[in-house]
Design a binder for these strands. Structure first.
Lengths: 120, 120
DNA sequence: CGAGGACGTTTACCCATGTAATCGATGCAG
DNA sequence: CTGCATCGATTACATGGGTAAACGTCCTCG
């Protein structure tokens, strides 16, 4: 099932560190997103329904862990965008993004390294 | 204002060629997406409301033309993804995508060229 | 033992979106 | 002139998502 935008914020938190309690998750994501703890709880529940995360009982409460893998999520999202906007071609995308936002020299160096690697 | 997924299909059609009538647009996008002409008309109207396109009268009907620029749309979309998933860093994104999907030699060559260009 | 709190669960509500049918005006074929 | 076909405009309706409060249950402190 599809993970929505707001939900993905919770997922990211869990991908960063898991398992965690609802309280811990909320502590991390509620403020920056202007959400109340109630909102975070709703998101957690929707993710449970979608089987994107699992709950393991710990005493009185639960700790949540991701079931969906970040790599798969990232791949689906970026591939979708790539296909929709750049006809699946990476080069035009890189071209576009590098124009739209200046790259740091480190970025350029890193890219160069990547390409060199691919070129074998 | 935000352009939704379905709406973006209409936008893409108009970016490809404009101005066009609703009928022409529908002819191009309805079938492949499994939409009726009515659906396309709704999308057109929503885009009008959002000021993403404009209508110019032509005899008894209208021809539509994009107001929003594709470049801006593409930039917003890809930048959003880049920020959300790759912390705004292009190199990790390229790395991820090139792993997830093998690049053609042309792509690699093109990328190499791009990087070389940036490096000045 | 009783009250307050901590948690997860349920319910709520509104807006955007996907999808489409219907309506109203208008121009054209007879 | 009149009825049919066309168009755009209006209305419809279900689902998903963002946002959150209310509820029920159990634990714990006094």
């Amino acid at each position: 099932m599809k993970i929505s935008n707001a939900e993905s914020v919770v997922m990211e938190a869990l991908w960063r560190a898991a398992p965690r309690t609802a309280e811990e998750i909320a502590a991390e994501v509620a403020g920056p997103n202007g959400w109340t703890e109630a909102t975070v709880k709703t998101l957690i529940n929707r993710l449970l329904k979608k089987k994107a995360i699992a709950a393991e009982p710990e005493g009185r409460r639960y700790r949540y862990r991701p079931l969906a893998e970040r790599a798969a999520y990232v791949r689906a999202e970026s591939q979708g965008l790539l296909d929709r906007l750049f006809d699946g071609r990476l080069a035009p995308m890189v071209s576009h993004l590098s124009q739209a936002r200046a790259l740091s020299p480190e970025d350029v160096a890193e890219l160069k390294r990547l390409i060199a690697e691919m070129d074998e």
